[in-house]
């Protein structure tokens, strides 16, 4: 995959806290090509958002990021403030979960978009303003000119998220990170927002990373998926394979907990995610895994191995029957 615009290699993120070092992300690889949408799935605390916030330098000072992350060939990890500023909002833009708190309540929508345009382009305020109205139109906000003079609280949740998207695509970025963009929205609005993101991915050939805990979203829009658990990638597969033949017990657990047609009872994954202050040796999922053996506890982090067309971080993947229980 030489043509990937976003390339993550062995990205690790840890936080220094009062109680010790929390290893939030423990070595994540990822490749996303232009015009491709990759889903990153996992429950809260699995490190899926932190990975991307970390490489963009948006985490608080207590965080340490190591590994390598390049966008368009430019290294971000360890890059100075200048390098990061040049990438943020220009080559790599981000959409956040809660558009109400992610937009500054005291500035007009238009001004907030103008700010990102002028941060990277030497244009006048009025030129940037015209572009801002254009962008609002692209993301499907009616009467963009009037709306650009309004404040975030005058917008509905879905409209606010459209504004966030308009802001993110203002400088035609190579990579768009969508961090749970639909979680805070109504179901009907969710579909519209996903459509907007998909349109951008298609029309502007943007590489999109869709971070979500919602497998339904993945099924709708993503091309490929990485499943994360306890700061590690446990499965990498195409969307089709993920749903048809999951390659990791955790994925199976996730799929079984989804409501399906004709199903009377949901199957939760029993137990809770591990304590990332002292991550367990070997496979982090083994405490909740029905297939776990002594071998799973061996003090080596399981690497991704091929399983069919997918990659799985389960050492027993070729011995066990991973059919989804319906």
């Amino acid at each position: 995959m030489t043509d990937s615009v976003l390339k993550l290699r062995d990205v690790k993120v840890s936080f220094n806290t009062e109680n010790g070092v929390v290893q939030a992300v423990r070595g994540v690889d990822l490749d996303v090509a232009a015009g491709e949408m990759v889903g990153v799935v996992g429950e809260s605390g699995s490190g899926k958002s932190v990975t991307f916030l970390g490489v963009m330098g948006l985490l608080p000072g207590s965080a340490t990021v190591t590994g390598s992350a390049t966008v368009g060939g430019v290294e971000m990890v360890g890059g100075g403030k200048k390098v990061l500023r040049g990438i943020r909002g220009k080559k790599m833009a981000m959409i956040f979960q809660d558009p109400l708190s992610a937009l500054n309540p005291v500035h007009k929508i238009g001004d907030q978009i103008i700010e990102i345009i002028r941060a990277h382009n030497d244009v006048s305020n009025s030129e940037a303003s015209t572009r801002a109205v254009e962008l609002l139109d692209i993301v499907g906000i009616p009467q963009p000119k009037e709306r650009s003079r309004q404040y975030p609280h005058e917008f509905s949740g879905g409209m606010r998220q459209r504004v966030m998207i308009a802001m993110a695509i203002a400088n035609d970025p190579d990579v768009l990170i969508a961090d749970e963009p639909t979680t805070a929205l109504d179901v009907t609005v969710q579909a519209q927002i996903l459509e907007v993101i998909q349109r951008i991915q298609r029309d502007m050939r943007t590489a999109v990373v869709m971070i979500t805990h919602d497998l339904g979203v993945i099924a709708r829009v993503a091309d490929r998926v990485q499943v994360m658990y306890a700061g590690r990638v446990v499965e990498r597969a195409s969307v089709m394979n993920l749903f048809d033949e999951p390659s990791h017990p955790y994925t199976v657990g996730l799929l079984s907990s989804l409501p399906r047609h004709g199903q009377t009872r949901l199957e939760p994954i029993i137990g809770s995610p591990p304590n990332m202050l002292q991550p367990p040796s070997g496979c982090a999922f083994r405490a909740r895994c029905t297939f776990a053996t002594d071998a799973c506890a061996v003090d080596v982090l399981p690497e991704l191995v091929p399983h069919g067309e997918s990659m799985s971080a389960c050492i027993r993947v070729n011995e066990i029957d991973l059919a989804v229980k319906v």
Binding site: S272, P274, N275, R286, A287, A292, T293, A297
Partner: peptide, 15 residues
């Protein structure tokens, strides 16, 4: 699971 010897830490510690 085929091995019962996986020790489950108390719920608090897990979280």
């Amino acid at each position: 699971s085929d091995s019962d010897d996986i020790e489950l830490p108390p719920a608090d510690a897990v979280q």
